[in-house]
Amino acid sequence: MSVIAVATGRGAWARLGAGIRHHKMASFGAGIVILMVLSALLAPWLAPHDPLEQDVLLRLASPSADFPLGNDSFGRDILARILWGGRVSLYVSTLSVLIAIFVGGALGILAGYIGGLFDRVLMAAMDVLLSFPTLVMGLLVVAMMGPTVGNLILAITLTAVAPFARIARAPTLTVKERDFVEAGRALGFSHLRIMVVHILPNVLDDILVMGALWLATAIRTEASLSFIGLGVRPPTASWGGMIREGFENILDAPWLAIFPSIAILVVMFGLNMLGDGLRDTSDPRLRHE
């Protein structure tokens, strides 16, 4: 694994970090994302109440001093449920995007590097995957295999692998034509070493930018599936599930659906700003170096 440590060590991360700091939009987006992640991580300490604690007297209560975002149809605290629900949403989406980056990135680099029939077959398979709308793929997997968190992650990963394979393959095609790859072969480097040490760092920027944008999509997909009841099972809180529950009472108690919607909106907004900003800063034509 030392090979991988060398490749991912500094370089791409350091550059992206510097890029974010110099880019107003990216740093604003990053700020929002960090805030939301922190609040989800610290939910056990931040949440004023237990997210599962029911109170019949507080059914559909409107926001009050004690329950600033109101209560749901079981009288549970909406603020606490949003904080705890964020954990689920972020956990599911982050994990599935990370797996997709790893699998898709590896497939893309392999396809680009090996080329020929392997490339054509693999990319055709990716095109098939890509032709499924995210939600349809989610429905398919969850309906066939059951609505567990694991299957939810699998469903989102499956739809995200193809775009990451594509985004990794394109720069691999150009990088592998450069002389330093041939020099590596002449120096007796293995193909694995060339792909991991020499090609990966040159395509990582593109992959990470894509990662930020896909994280937003993954959060939306998780919410959509939970909304139609194929996501996380109740009573566990998740943003999509909360919106669904709130939907039944949208006219009487709109805050049930509105506050989790705002949470999703803010995270997606932050991630998109971060992703767009990263894309700007990783574009060498826009870099002032």
């Binding site: 002389d179 007796g188 020499h198 760092p201």
Partner: peptide
């Protein structure tokens, strides 16, 4: 054997911009 042989013969390229890995 090829790996061992490659130690004994090397190549220098035309384009000094493409021959070095920019990330290393």
């Amino acid at each position: 054997r090829l790996r061992a042989l490659r130690r004994r013969m090397q190549i220098v390229f035309q384009d000094p911009y493409s021959s070095l890995n920019p990330r290393r």
